[in-house]
Amino acid sequence: MAIVKEVKKGDTTFIFHDDCCKNVTPEEIQANKKLLGQIAYPALRAAHLRKEGSA
């Protein structure tokens, strides 16, 4: 499992490994994207609301 990209945005770091897209089917890719959204969306929304509230 190799790191292919690392992206930092504020306090969040996204690390992409090649196992997320190597030897996977299109259906598995869609399932992974859905799961990522379910995990990331609440945290991103909460961070946005905190930032909006402090403005």
Rank of each mutant, 00 (worst) to 15 (best):
N23Q: 13
M1C: 12
R45G: 01
R50Q: 12
S54W: 05
K22W: 06
L35Y: 11
A2C: 04
D18W: 01
G10V: 02
E52V: 02
A55K: 05
I29V: 15
D11M: 06
V7Y: 00
E28L: 08
D11N: 03
E6G: 03
A31C: 11
T12I: 04
E6N: 07
A55C: 05
A46G: 01
L35A: 15
I15G: 08
L49H: 09
I29L: 15
C21Y: 15
M1L: 11
K8L: 03
K51C: 08
P26M: 09
I15T: 15
I29N: 10
E52A: 07
A40L: 12
N23W: 05
C20T: 08
G53M: 05
I3T: 11
V24Q: 10
Q38M: 15
D11S: 09
G37I: 05
L36W: 14
K33R: 11
V4F: 12
Q38Y: 11
D18Q: 04
Q30W: 12
T25V: 06
S54D: 07
L36Y: 13
N32D: 13
C20R: 11
A2K: 11
L49K: 14
G37F: 00
K22T: 12
N32V: 07
T25K: 08
G37W: 03
F14D: 00
E28V: 08
D19Y: 04
F16P: 00
K22L: 10
I29R: 14
L36G: 14
A31Q: 15
K9S: 01
V4W: 09
N32R: 15
C20P: 05
A40C: 09
G10N: 04
P42L: 12
A55N: 05
V7M: 01
G53L: 03
T25H: 09
R50A: 04
